[in-house]
Design a protein around this nucleic acid. Structure first.
Length: 214
DNA sequence: ACGTAGATCGCCT
DNA sequence: GGCGATCTACGTA
């Protein structure tokens, strides 16, 4: 078990998991070295057999969505329009619910995590990890930051015509610039302002430096 | 700042 | 053979 907090991550309802994933760190292990990819800033909850926007609606089960039927903590990766989508399974075995990870605030400037297809391409995430249990996978999660404020909205790209289309099952870190399809007016000047842990906790002189002299 | 069209391809019918 | 849990470019205000 690589993450001692993993029970905190998977022992929740799907909506709780979608919210609690905000701020968590994505870490990729390559050639024995851990590389921090960034912090999750946007997720969507997909609520299983009752949810007409979910791949497992009405109990649909095919080789493509088989991983959704695994227990909480397994990765579900599928491809659409030539893009890989990264999801985390959230419930017990045979209860096919999952959270789509839609955007990440990347740690390195050469990476772009501002959309579900963009983040998998930028970080090199492929179907290779589909069905893996995240604590044992090359791609792992770690508890890190907490959002100052979580906002919700309807899910993006949903085409069903019933009440599930507009259900507020999309969650994001309010004000963060890396959230996909967000209005410019909602973005704060500095992404650090969107997290509970402000930068002065990292630098003891921050307050002295930023408070103007009388 | 919005909406829409076209690209594009693996998976399902 | 058709269809997306997308992305980009381009049209219109």
């Amino acid at each position: 078990m690589k993450d001692k907090n993993f029970l905190d991550i998977i022992n929740k309802s799907t909506i709780e998991t979608a919210k609690s994933l905000l701020g968590m760190k994505l870490v990729m292990e390559t050639d024995g070295e851990s590389q921090i990819l960034g912090n999750i800033v946007e997720t969507e909850a997909y609520l299983g057999t009752l949810d007409s926007a979910c791949h497992s609606f009405m109990g649909k089960r095919t080789p493509r969505n088989e991983s959704m039927y695994l227990p909480a903590g397994h990765w579900y990766v599928y491809q659409i329009h030539g893009h890989f989508m990264l999801n985390l399974v959230t419930m017990d075995e045979d209860i096919p619910e999952a959270v789509l990870i839609r955007a990440v605030q990347a740690d390195a400037p050469e990476h772009d995590g501002s959309g579900p297809g963009k983040l998998t391409k930028s970080f090199g995430i492929t179907k290779e990890i589909d069905g893996e249990y995240f604590p044992d996978s090359r791609l792992t999660l770690e508890v890190d930051k907490t959002p100052k404020e979580i906002a919700s909205r309807k899910r993006i790209g949903i085409t069903c015509m019933d009440e599930w289309r507009d259900a507020p099952l999309g969650f994001y870190v309010k004000g963060n610039s890396q959230v996909s399809r967000i209005r410019k007016k909602e973005i704060l000047d500095d992404d650090e302002l969107t997290w509970e842990k402000p930068p002065f906790q990292k630098n003891k002189n921050y307050l002295k430096e930023t408070i103007p002299k009388a």
